[in-house]
Design a protein around this nucleic acid. Structure first.
Lengths: 157, 157
DNA sequence: GCATATCGTTATGTGACATAACTATTATGA
DNA sequence: TCATAATAGTTATGTCACATAACGATATGC
């Protein structure tokens, strides 16, 4: 007769071969690295990934409304409030009243905001260059293309 | 004299051109789509991304310890406890005592666990195929290669 | 045999999200 | 025109995926 409770074998090395069959798994692992690295890069500026994105978008699109920014960042309006609060408290941006619509605020960067943004962008740029060292231009372009195509699959239908 | 408070221009379309200059931005956006799609795919099985990963790893590596699994999943041991609790409660896996080390548990899948896992893997596979339709094999291989190289940058140093 | 490390666990905190519901304001349509 | 609906920002609250600290039980190294 067979043993009722055969002892499971001792696992010396954990295999993730099955998960490696999925792009999503690779994307998550690679993105975790990028995210951790980005957090370190932004730490000297006292910015998080999310506040950095918001600041860049406000600098690039001065005068946009909070709802427009929330749309662009793909988050809900309530979650943007604290982010804007923080950027405003640090005087990197301003909430300006819109004369034609008294419900809305136009978000504009201050000089300090634009300057911090420029320095942060520079740091992030050299940071990404380090993560991508050894990746050729054509290779890079192809990866961006595939990522964009995957992204597009989400918005349609 | 210049106006003290020039009205900010009305923004009709929000540009994310600067952020598009970063791979991390593309990765986040694409991964969000994959994640949302994956969540939908796993919903019929009552699995989340994290419980799915854990189940697959246990099926592929029967007998592994919780600490090994936490290592493989890149999370801390405390966070794994509730995940294992859930899988055990649903009788998809078992915590078996390790005779040689009474501190440790060997995680083994049940028959039901292996069956659910197989069905979930199938669903996720066809799901990823849909997200990747139109992406050529060589292109796909190149993307995986770049993602792996980025991932490797995190573990070193 | 004693200090130290390891395994799983509990308690707790945080950050990035979501939903519901509110106020103030603007737009709509009968 | 005036009631109703929609929109902008906000508050309160919940969830999920993480993290750290600390603990009991056990194992290991000198």
């Amino acid at each position: 007769m067979s043993k009722p409770n055969p002892a499971p074998p001792v696992v010396d090395h954990v295999s993730d071969a099955t998960l490696r069959g999925f792009v999503g798994y690779h994307m998550k692992r690679a993105f975790n690295v990028v995210q951790a690295d980005l957090a370190n890069t932004l730490k000297p500026f006292d910015l998080r990934m999310i506040t950095y994105s918001a600041l860049v978008l406000i600098v690039d699109n001065p005068g946009l409304r909070q709802s427009q920014l929330a749309d662009a960042m793909d988050i809900e309006r309530p979650n943007l409030v604290v982010i804007i609060d923080e950027l405003e408290r640090r005087e990197l941006i301003l909430r300006e009243k819109v004369p034609t619509d008294r419900r809305a605020y136009a978000l504009v960067p201050t000089l300090a905001g634009r300057q911090l943004c420029a320095r942060a962008i520079e740091a992030v740029t050299s940071h990404e260059a380090r993560l991508l060292q050894g990746v050729g231009m054509t290779e890079y372009a192809q990866v961006l293309d595939v990522l964009r195509r995957i992204e597009a699959k989400g918005t349609k239908e």
